[in-house]
């Protein structure tokens, strides 16, 4: 996908920015997005990345962004806080549900109704699946889902797509390997869903059998995107443009021995990617443990720190695109 032509002019002034083609009033799930919506986010992020910081500060001047984190988070919370600050917004919220009235037994719906009278945009992470959809339904203001349990994490997916598009100049036609825990990783599910919006993308799914992509996700992408599965990275490594690595968590295994068996096998090292294209890019939503060797950091394949950095500008783009939404 090429970036929108409008962004070329955007470098000069804040008043020439990409046309707001964003159709959503909340960012809850990857399944809500059309290709146009994704393109709107990517082109806005690209414009904001080049925009002067002083000019950016005017965008949300006088706005209040609430970041409600009912579950601990490092990167996501910090990147949303940074994005809001970069656009000049004030920030309210909490990083621990123990300090909120939830602890006193207040329903999530009531908490959100109250906060939507205080803030212009609500960013929420919650440990309960479906919490973001409920929040979006009861909030007068736009809600951005910063992760709801094992369900969705759409802003991670948007920053993943932004990173891929920035490096390759397009997403259409790429061969993308998803590696590790494809069963429980919400980032993988959201990414797979959004990749179906692009043309001729080929997915290579590499995981232990017990951690393969769930059937319901497979059925939701069937016919929309070409995919192949294997348990060995070596089967696909030569064809990949992108290798998206995820962490295999010990707690997913009933038998610790099973974990130990896959632990060493599902580790990306220089020798594991020796036959890869020179242009292969390796991504990871972070944090990593030992599934991605530190030796990769020094190579031209490493894209994960750039990916994490892009989280700020993509979240700036979402705040920008939602700032004028009036729900009711």
């Amino acid at each position: 996908m090429g970036l929108l032509a409008a962004e070329k002019g955007a470098k000069k002034s804040l008043h020439i920015c990409p046309k707001n083609n964003f159709s959503l009033s909340d960012v809850v799930s990857a399944s809500d997005f059309s290709r146009k919506d994704v393109e709107a986010v990517l082109s806005t992020a690209s414009w904001l990345e080049k925009e002067d910081i002083k000019e950016k500060k005017k965008i949300l001047h006088g706005f209040v962004v609430a970041t409600l984190f009912f579950e601990p988070s490092t990167r996501t919370k910090l990147s949303f806080d940074t994005a809001a600050q970069n656009l000049g917004a004030s920030i309210i919220g909490f990083a621990d549900a123990n300090v909120s009235s939830i602890k006193k037994g207040e329903s999530l719906a009531d908490t959100i109704r109250v906060v939507s009278d205080y803030a212009d945009i609500i960013v929420m992470r919650h440990y309960i699946e479906g919490a973001a959809r409920l929040a979006a339904d009861v909030s007068k203001r736009p809600v951005i889902n910063a992760g709801d349990g094992a369900n969705q994490h759409p802003t991670q997916t948007l920053l993943d797509l932004y990173t891929i598009n920035k490096v390759f100049g397009h997403i259409d036609g790429l061969t993308i390997g998803l590696f590790g825990d494809l069963r429980y990783g919400r980032t993988v599910h959201s990414l797979v869903q959004m990749l179906t919006l692009f043309d001729d993308v080929k997915l290579k799914l590499i995981s232990p059998e017990t951690l393969s992509l769930p059937d319901n996700v497979k059925s939701s992408i069937a016919g929309k995107i070409e995919y192949e599965e294997a348990q060995e990275l070596s089967k696909f490594i030569e064809s990949l443009d992108v290798l998206y690595v995820t962490r295999i968590q010990k707690e997913r295994f009933v038998d610790p021995m099973d974990y130990e068996k896959v632990r060493g096998k599902y580790c990306v090292t220089p020798s594991a990617i020796a036959k890869a294209k020179k242009t292969l890019k390796i991504m990871h939503p972070l944090p990593r443990v030992d599934e991605l060797s530190a030796e990769i950091d020094k190579t031209s394949h490493a894209l994960y720190f750039e990916q994490a950095k892009n989280g700020v500008v993509v979240r700036e783009a979402l705040l920008y695109l939602l700032k004028d939404v009036k729900k009711w």
Binding site: I128, G130, L134, G149
Partner: peptide
């Protein structure tokens, strides 16, 4: 079917 769904935890 999901015990972690908001509909099984809150009055939704």
């Amino acid at each position: 079917i999901n015990p972690k769904c908001i509909t099984n935890i809150e009055n939704v």
